[in-house]
Structure formats: structure tokens, C-alpha cells
Amino acid sequence: MTTRGATATLLAGHPTLVAIAKRIGVRLLAGVGVLWGAATLSFIALHVTAGDAALSTVAGQGANPTKEVLDQVRRDLGLDQPLYHQYLDYLGRLLHGDLGRSYQQRIAVSQAISEQLGQTVQLAVAAAAVAVLLAIAAAVLTARRRPWRSIASGVELTLSATPTFVIGIVLLIVFSFTLKVLPVSGNDGPRALILPTLTLALPIGAVLAQVLRGELEEVLEQPFILTARSRGMRDTVVRVRHALRHALVQIVTMSGFVVGGLLGGAVITETLFVRQGVGQLMLSAVTTKDIPMVLGLVVFAAFVYVVVNLLVDIAYTVIDPRLVTR
């Protein structure tokens, strides 16, 4: 059999596999495009502010820099090269994971991020898990159950409209200052993680619960739910085993919202609870006008967003093949 024949047989045998591969390939390209765009915007922002770059680098040493010193620094930073050269240099360094150097801390941005990343990942993963679990519990327990549904959706509306820092402050007042059961701040131990996790998780979980309940209620009206019920299955079992599965596929599309909420919320939460982490790094970079650090963190955030969305998309395609055959 010829190669072409083999391919044809393969295609005929697995049209979905090819379609899945195609879909993932397209998404991968789109993700690379977004990252390239983010890097380009970041380069433009860096370049527009580059007049300060040399000055900012030496300003920290306290001396009043002479023109010679500034020129020397510009040469060291490659600022005297033609623009396209600087741009390609910048992209090349990004490909190697080099996000530039901090003006203030005098270390590589990537190093600063990797030092702080662990704390934030811990917080973000815990918060994401809590948010999803709370949303599932709230949606499964209250979908199409009259008084509970209204109460839960009222609570969710309030939580989703409450700014993150207010949620954190309320938790602090209740659990740290009134009941005195949980620590106010710090990075040590799982007990110090509880309040920041809830602070970050509650507003995200509230939005997820609203979406999930809407989906669940739609699924519960489908004929196959009636079939399952008529087989004598209990209501809760039907909800968890049949309806939830379908509804969860929809919630996966919210991954972008969740990642954005976690990264933005981390800045607020880490400030409020005086925790170390990427959010704190971002805030201190903003207040000290450490432009390479801020832009490096933003490119990093875009990278996280793209990677998470890509992974979710792959999982999504595999879970729900209707997407590609439709």
C-alpha cells in the first residue's frame, strides 16, 4: 500500500482524530500569536520609556550621572543598536526565558518571579479548587429547588459584586479580630493560607456558581434526565452523575476568567494579608516604577493565560468530541 493510501485509510478511519489535531494546532498557533503580540506591545512600551531606562539604572546608585556614564549604560543595555535589532534581540531573549532585568532589584525578572512564584501558585491553586468546589456544591444543591435557589443566587450576586479586598477585610474582622481563630497575615503554615484562599476564591466561585446553575437547569430539562429518573434513580444521583457532567463542560470555557481573576486578585490578596508572592512583586514594581519588572510580569501573565487556555482547550476537545465533528 502506498503512503497516500495509508494516510487516506487513516483519515477515513479516524476523522475525529485528524479534526482534533487540526483544532489543537490552530489553537496553538493562536496562542503563539497572542504571546508574540504581548511581547511586541511590551517592547514598544519599554522602548517609549527607554529614555529613562539608562537614567533609572544608574539613579539607584545615588550619584548624579554624567553624560558619559549614561552613554556607557545605554551601550551596555544595547540601546544604541538599531530598533529592529533591539526588537529581535528582545524576542530572542524572551524565547530563552529571559524577561529582562529589574531596574530596582538588580536581578533578572525571571529570577525574581521564580523566587516568588511558589507562594502565589500555592494560593492560586488552593483558591481555584475551593472556588470550583463551592460552585459545584451550590449549583447541584440549589438548581431548580425553589427557596434555596433564590437565597443562593442572592448570596452569589452579593459576593460577585463585592470587591476582593472587602471580602478579605470582612473575613479578617470576623475570624482574626473577633473570633481570633485564624492568623492575620504571613506565609507560614496552612492556617495562614485559609483566609487568603477564601478571599480569592469567593468572588470567582460566586460567578462560576451562577453560570453552572444556569447550565445545570438547562440540562435538567433534557429528555435523558427524565429517562434516568424513570429508571428509579434518585434526584441527587441524577444531578451528580448525569447533569453535572454536561454542565461542567460549559464551565471549562470560563478558564480565562478564572485565570484573570486569580492573577489580578493575587495582587490585592497578597497586599491585604501581607503575603509574599508574584502579586506583591508586581505592586512593588509599580510603586517604584520598575518598568522592566512590570512588563516582564505582564508578559509572564499572558504566558500563563495562554498555556492554561490551551491545556483547557485540549482537555475540552478530548472530553467533548462533538466540538470537532459538528
Binding site: 520609556t49 481573576g261 489580578g264 508586581m282 509599580v286 518598568i291 510580569l297
Partner: peptide
């Protein structure tokens, strides 16, 4: 495509970038 790029950055971080460049 430009909008796709900007949407890949959380809103609060975008606002922080503007403040870094323009001042508080």
C-alpha cells in the same frame, strides 16, 4: 488580534501597567 492580546492580560494588571507608565 490586538484585542485578543490585550484580553490575555488580567484587567487589574493592565491598569497597573498604565499607572506605572503614567503615574499614580
Amino acid at each position: 488580534r490586538l484585542i485578543d492580546v490585550v484580553l490575555s492580560i488580567p484587567e487589574l494588571l493592565l491598569a497597573l501597567v498604565v499607572i506605572t507608565l503614567a503615574g499614580a
